[in-house]
C-alpha cells in the first residue's frame, strides 16, 4: 500500500506520451492501473516515472473502420460493455468483458492494459487471438500493425518495442455464419482466476460446413496457442458433438507446458485445457449455427 517514491507526468496527447516514453529511462504507461498499481504496492517492480494516459481522449474511441471496429487502447471494459458497435458486431467480446473481475475494475481497467499486461490469466489475449485482431502500435516515428498471433510473445511480454505504445485494437466484424466462443476455468470461485481458457471463432459456409476456424488455448504456454492441427481437421467438416469430443480427447498436448503454482497444478491445467478449448469451440459452433439459421 506504500509505494516507492514516484514521478508522474500526465501528457496531453499520444505524441507527448511517446515523447516521454522515449526521453525517460525508467518510465511506464499508466492506463487503468488495475494491475500496475498492485505491482507498485508490492514494490516488486514498476517504474520510476508513470506516464498517465488514462484520460487521453484519442485512446478512448470505439469506431467503425472498414470491416472492423477500432477499439482505442484506453477503452475500459465498462465502455466495451456499453458500446452499441460491439454489441452489434462482436457481441461475445461483451460476454468476455463482463467476466473480468468486478465493476470497480471494469470501470478503470482497459483493453490495452489487459493486452499489454499479457498475464496468462488475462481474458482478452486468447479471445483476440482467436478472432484475429490486429494491434496498432505507435512508435516515435511510425505506426505499425501487429497481428494478434505475433503480438503476445511470452509471459508479460508483447511485441511492442521500447518506446512504442499500443494505441488501438482492430477487431474484425463478425461475418454472417460466424460465431465466437470463450470458456475459462476459474479457480477459487466464479470468475475469480482463470487457470486455463479456450477461445474460438467459427465461420460456416451456407452448407453448414466449417469454412474458417480458429481454436486458441491459453494457460498452458507462454502465450495463447492456436491449435492449427485441430483447425485443419475441422475445416470443411460439419462436426457432430461426438466428433468434437473425440477430436479433443485425442488432442496432442505435446506443446503444452503449463505452470504449476498455488492456484492449480500443471497436471490439472493440462487436463483442463482440452476441455475448455473444446467447450469454447462448441459455443462458437452453436453461435455460428444459430446465426446461419436466423
Amino acid at each position: 500500500m506504500l509505494l516507492r517514491e514516484l514521478e508522474y507526468v500526465k501528457p496531453d496527447s499520444v505524441d507527448e506520451a511517446l515523447e516521454w516514453l522515449g526521453r525517460l529511462s525508467d518510465a511506464g504507461l499508466l492506463a487503468g492501473g488495475q494491475s500496475l498499481i498492485n505491482v507498485l504496492k508490492m514494490r516488486i517492480g514498476g517504474y520510476q516515472t508513470l506516464i498517465d494516459i488514462s484520460k487521453l481522449e484519442d485512446l478512448k474511441r470505439i469506431e467503425m473502420v472498414g470491416q472492423g471496429i477500432r477499439i482505442g487502447a484506453g477503452v475500459t471494459y465498462d465502455e466495451l460493455l456499453h458500446s452499441p458497435a460491439i454489441s452489434l458486431y462482436r457481441p461475445l467480446l461483451q460476454e468476455v468483458a463482463l467476466r473480468i473481475a468486478d465493476p470497480q475494475v471494469r470501470n478503470r481497467g482497459t483493453v490495452g492494459g489487459n493486452c499489454c499486461y499479457n498475464d496468462p490469466t488475462c481474458h482478452l489475449p486468447p479471445y483476440l487471438t482467436a478472432i484475429g485482431a490486429t494491434f496498432e502500435a505507435r512508435g516515435p516515428k511510425a505506426t505499425r500493425m501487429i497481428l494478434a498471433r505475433d503480438f503476445f510473445v511470452s509471459y508479460y511480454q508483447t511485441a511492442l518495442a521500447p518506446g512504442e505504445m499500443l494505441v488501438g485494437v482492430y477487431v474484425p466484424i463478425a461475418k454472417r455464419g460466424s460465431g465466437d466462443g470463450f470458456r475459462a476455468m476459474s479457480v477459487g470461485g466464479t470468475d475469480v482466476l482463470n487457470i486455463v481458457a479456450g477461445a474460438s471463432t467459427v465461420t460456416l459456409k451456407e452448407d453448414g460446413t466449417i469454412g474458417d476456424v480458429a481454436v486458441v488455448v491459453t494457460g498452458v504456454a507462454e502465450h495463447p496457442l492456436r491449435l492449427d492441427g485441430v483447425e485443419s481437421q475441422l475445416v470443411g467438416s460439419s462436426p457432430e458433438p461426438s466428433d468434437v469430443r473425440s477430436l479433443f480427447s485425442a488432442l496432442d498436448t505435446a506443446r503444452f507446458d503449463p505452470v504449476d503454482d498455488v492456484h492449480a497444478s500443471a497436471e490439472y491445467r493440462l487436463k483442463m485445457a482440452p476441455i475448455f478449448v473444446r467447450r469454447a469451440l462448441e459455443q462458437a459452433l452453436d453461435n455460428a449455427r444459430r446465426g446461419l439459421r436466423d
Binding site: 498492485n38 479457480v187 477459487g188 470461485g189 466464479t190 470468475d191 475469480v192 482466476l193 503454482d261 498455488v262 492456484h263
Partner: peptide, 28 residues
C-alpha cells in the same frame, strides 16, 4: 471450496494475499 492457507516445503507462504487466498465472493 475456495479458501486455503498453503505453504511449500521451505515454509514459504503461497497465499499471503487475496489474490491467492480466494475469499469467497457474492457469486459463490
Amino acid at each position: 471450496l475456495y479458501e486455503s492457507l498453503d505453504y511449500d516445503a521451505e515454509g514459504q507462504m503461497l497465499s499471503p494475499n487475496f489474490f491467492a487466498y480466494k475469499a469467497v465472493t457474492a457469486l459463490d
